[in-house]
Amino acid sequence: MIGVGRLTLPPYADFLGVTAARDTDGAPLFKLGFSDVVVGRPGFLHGGAIAGLLEIAAIGTVLDALEDEPGTSAKLITVTVDFMRGGRPRDTFAAAKVTRLGARIANVEAFAWQDDREKPIAGARMNVMLRRG
């Protein structure tokens, strides 16, 4: 599932249990498997784990968009997360959209969902600083 193009994930993704694939359109798709590592209050996902999944999706999608510029780094400057529904003990998916890819800054939106992509459990808006390789 992993290592498609530049969809190589950091150690933190292994810690959380996040893997990457591509959906039928070729867009990066990320999955957080459920485990004790991601539990917040009993029966629900931890907000920090959900934010972690959104971050991995955002950075992964930005680097994927810059696939032909190896050596580029992407660092978060601001992250604003809205938690919309409690995350239940099951797989969680995430995808991100780069709304603007500038020379130095990328604006990214990411969403996480479980059973129904139209019913997100969380969304995030991020400003990402780019250092082009």
Partner: peptide, 16 residues
């Protein structure tokens, strides 16, 4: 770690 090249922590653990 969120960025292997620099060894900097990912954002998620700080948010958590």
């Amino acid at each position: 770690v969120g960025d292997i090249a620099s060894g900097v922590l990912a954002s998620g653990p700080i948010v958590a």
